[in-house]
């Protein structure tokens, strides 16, 4: 429960309320991580928040943080050079290895693209191991889209489709308008050979998983990433329990066959 000191090496504002912090170790770095995992970020005297790792460069860990409460506000307020505490990496990873040999459909909503970004980078580095890769991204407004430049680079890779939609837009926006699941209509897939990855608000993931299963993708071949209150991140504080699952340890990434019954019960 004692954090390791890291320093803010880079800070990049992504959206009005979202920053990507590049964190470099002051002391010994944390253990190696996998896409899908998260760290606990501790701001001096304020508290700790669970944030997915959104990428890395050498020893620098990237975390893309949306300011939504006191904890994230304190983290987002850190300036370059300032220190924070890190614990991690915790939790399960996206099953990119298991998806080899298949087509891949990725559905990302809002800040949900951040935990998926390292998985997408991994898929593209290992491009030959996968069939078609469809990256479907939704956001509230065009100005809420994350990683826009990087997404256009992804779209240049052979056999990679990037489709972006927003829930509402003014007429100046020339892209798609509609929920992210509506982009599934644009994807030609054979559901039996697809691995799906979905990350975003829980309601969005439910519909994303349904859109995939409607197209014949098995629930066991869909990864979703769940969010629950986390205090300890080591399955000892009890907060993140969802049925028998400790989301911090058994998740955050769960296959949909496991997650679906848990997500369907109100107040579970």
């Amino acid at each position: 429960m004692v954090p390791t000191r890291y320093r803010v090496a880079t800070k990049r504002q992504e959206l009005t309320d979202t920053w990507t912090l590049g964190l470099e170790p002051v002391d010994e770095p944390l253990e190696p991580w996998s896409p899908g995992q998260f760290n606990m970020l501790w701001a001096f005297g304020v508290g700790e928040v669970a944030i997915s790792i959104s990428g890395s460069e050498d020893d620098t860990l990237l975390h893309t943080v949306r300011r939504v409460g006191a904890g994230t506000e304190a983290v987002c307020a850190l300036a370059e050079g300032e220190m924070l505490g890190l614990r991690g990496p915790f939790g399960s990873r996206w099953r990119t290895v298991e998806a080899r040999g298949k087509d891949v459909v990725i559905l990302a909503g809002g800040i949900g693209l951040a935990p998926l970004r390292p998985a997408i980078r991994q898929l593209l580095l290992d491009r030959g191991s996968y069939g078609r890769i469809s990256i479907l991204v939704g956001a509230r407004h065009p100005e809420d889209l994350l990683f826009v430049e990087e997404m256009s680079r992804w779209a240049e890779s052979p056999g990679v489709d990037v489709e972006i939609t927003v829930d509402t837009a003014s007429s100046g926006w020339s892209g798609h308008v509609g929920v992210v699941t509506s982009l599934m209509d644009r994807v030609e897939i054979d559901g039996s050979s697809v691995h799906g990855f979905a990350c975003g608000p829980e309601v969005m993931m439910r519909f994303a998983a349904k859109a995939l299963t409607d197209r014949g993708v098995a629930p066991t071949a869909i990864d979703v990433s769940l969010e629950r209150n986390m205090k300890c991140a080591i399955a000892q504080c009890g907060h993140c329990q969802l049925g028998p699952t400790f989301v911090c340890r058994d998740g955050p990434v769960l296959d949909y066959a496991t997650a679906q019954p848990l997500m369907m019960v109100r107040e579970r």
Partner: peptide
């Protein structure tokens, strides 16, 4: 159904602010 999902404004800033 899509419009209902749009209406939910799932990406919106949570109304109440707490620890997160």
């Amino acid at each position: 159904q899509r419009v209902r999902l749009q209406l939910l404004d799932v990406y919106g800033t949570p109304a109440a602010r707490a620890n997160g």
